[in-house]
Design a protein around this nucleic acid. Structure first.
Length: 270
DNA sequence: AACCGCGCCTGTTCGC
DNA sequence: TGCGAACAGGCGCGGT
């Protein structure tokens, strides 16, 4: 599942390979994604040229010369790749002036493709109410401590709340809590100052490390047919019943907010 | 206000 | 062997 490092990896690929390309034609399927695909608005992008690739949280913003931006979210199974179109779950195809077309494919259709006019980005409901970027200075120990105050929900739920901080999904929430030695079910307001500090540090470190390795799950921009190179670095995620890499106690799993959570009962204090 | 739980989707894995 | 059930989870939304 694409998390922030995967989206950032895709953004960099778009910055490198899409910026400067002119749209020749746009084709859409009539399948509904998270929101209906705006076929007519997409077709009107023909003739326009991509000028920049930005990212906010897990949203990609691909700017076009005449003013609009393409808003793309990869959801669970979405991807944005340069290849021949026509596969089963292709939803939007951009034919370009040079090279292979850009294809948005998404089997599970939790993704999103929208066109935002010049004034629409500021008012876009998907982009409002988002917390700070985890890798920017605004996300620091003092900030997180303030957000934890009088919050009794489990720290993992808080960490995955996009109003608190964006881009931390299920994999990196589990992994950063493991590295910080914090049990995922700990009520947020019970974290010590040291723990808050450690958690911020580990969230930043793990996201940076994963970006450097091209993410965990998406492989298209690594030139290899396998998952991103972060996959083999996972300490607890998906390892229930296996031994903790640090203390060898069996990794446990629990369901939190309908999502599976992995932790080491020995290394992570409650 | 805070927070929980649901529904959207389909490919893959699991149990009988 | 075959088939249905369970599972995967980002996100917005509605209910408490």
């Amino acid at each position: 599942m694409p998390e922030l490092p995967e989206v950032e990896t895709v953004r960099r690929a778009m910055q490198r390979h899409l910026v400067g390309r002119r749209v020749v034609a746009v084709y859409t399927s009539n399948k509904k994604l998270r929101a209906p695909v705006p076929a007519a608005r997409l077709r009107r992008l023909a003739g326009d040229t991509f000028t920049a690739a930005r990212r906010r949280a897990k949203y990609l913003l691909l700017d076009l010369e005449s003013g609009p931006s393409l808003l793309v979210h990869l959801g669970m199974t979405g991807n944005l790749v340069f290849r021949a179109p026509g596969e089963k779950h292709d939803h939007v195809v951009f034919e370009l002036d040079e090279g292979l077309p850009l294809v948005f494919s998404d089997p599970r259709r939790f993704g999103l493709v929208l066109v935002l006019g010049p004034g629409e980005e500021a008012a876009c409901p998907y982009l409002s109410d988002l917390g700070p970027e985890p890798l920017e200075a605004g996300f620091d120990a003092a900030y997180l401590a303030a957000r934890c105050q009088s919050r009794r929900r489990p720290i993992k739920a808080l960490l995955m709340d996009n109003v608190v901080v964006v881009g931390v999904g299920n994999i990196y929430a589990s992994e950063s809590l493991f590295r910080a030695g914090i049990h995922p079910l700990t009520p947020a307001d019970q974290l010590s100052g040291e723990q808050t500090k450690a958690l911020v540090r580990e969230v930043k470190a793990i996201l940076r490390e994963s970006i450097r390795r091209g993410g965990t799950t998406i492989s298209d921009y690594l030139g290899k047919g396998e998952g991103g190179r972060f996959q083999q670095r996972l300490a607890v995620y998906g390892r229930a019943g296996e031994n903790c890499l640090v203390c060898e106690a069996p990794v446990e799993s629990a369901v939190l907010g309908g999502r599976s959570t992995f932790y080491c009962p020995h290394c992570q204090e409650k």
